[in-house]
């Protein structure tokens, strides 16, 4: 079997298109929302009254310990066609798929990010909390001005790694028929049974995007040390 270079080059355009329109959008939106949610969970786990905190911890564990593709299918079942009927016949399926995709990816990865934040928060010495108490700073101010900025420094590299992991998980979107890059590659290859070329191109696009990001994160990590 030969590698059809011409066919591969032809696939670059449409695959790049799918990459920009779906993969990148889901990754960027998902990472930002997951980073915010993760912070909320982590702070909640320190500030909420015990019973609520226990429920939160349990829910986060459940989400972290079930597979992402299953969660995607589950979300579709609930929000699109629980009983065979489409809930939002007016909106097109791709848009709903994208929204659900971003939502599920955000929530799923927020549970991991919460753990990273937690480690970052725990790495801050007791003296910082005590100094804040001695100055009578309001609790919200202690979080905003003292704890979160310092925790973020310790957490940022690990958040970056979760974002890259999320990026590499985007092909799972094909289980809910969102036309992301790998699904597109499968479709292009299927027309002529030439899968090697298209999957190679898709793989290279992934690599070209995630490798520089990983290097950048490593540099950032070094810069963030006090």
């Amino acid at each position: 079997m030969e590698f059809d270079l011409e066919f591969a080059l032809e696939a670059v355009g449409p695959l790049l298109m799918a990459f920009l329109q779906v993969t990148l959008v889901v990754t960027v939106a998902g990472s930002v929302i997951a980073a915010l949610l993760g912070l909320i969970w982590a702070v909640g786990q320190r500030e909420l009254p015990t019973p609520i905190r226990m429920v939160l911890t349990w829910v986060l564990d459940v989400i972290r310990m079930t597979p992402l593709p299953l969660q995607l299918l589950f979300a579709v079942a609930i929000f699109i066609s629980f009983d065979g009927y489409r809930r939002f016949p007016e909106t097109d399926v791709e848009t709903i798929g994208m929204i659900l995709g971003v939502a599920v990816f955000s929530v799923h990865y927020s549970t991991y990010m919460a753990e990273s934040y937690r480690a970052g928060i725990e790495s801050i010495g007791r003296g910082q909390w005590e100094a804040a108490t001695a100055l009578s700073l309001p609790r919200i101010r202690v979080w905003r001005a003292v704890i979160i900025p310092q925790a973020l420094r310790a957490t940022l590299p690990s958040l970056g790694n979760w974002a890259i992991a999320m990026f590499k998980d985007t092909p799972f979107l094909l289980v809910i028929l969102v036309p992301e890059m790998v699904a597109k590659a499968k479709q292009l290859g299927g027309a002529s049974y030439q899968y090697t070329e298209v999957f190679t191109v898709a793989g290279l696009i992934f690599l070209a995007a995630s490798y520089p990001t990983a290097v950048l994160m490593r540099k950032l990590e070094k810069k963030l040390v006090y």
């Binding site: 005590e130 100094a131 001695a134």
Partner: peptide
Amino acid sequence: RKRIGMVFQQFNLFPN
């Protein structure tokens, strides 16, 4: 407590 201030052995300045 606002009327009380404290200086610690380990300074505890906010490094950020």
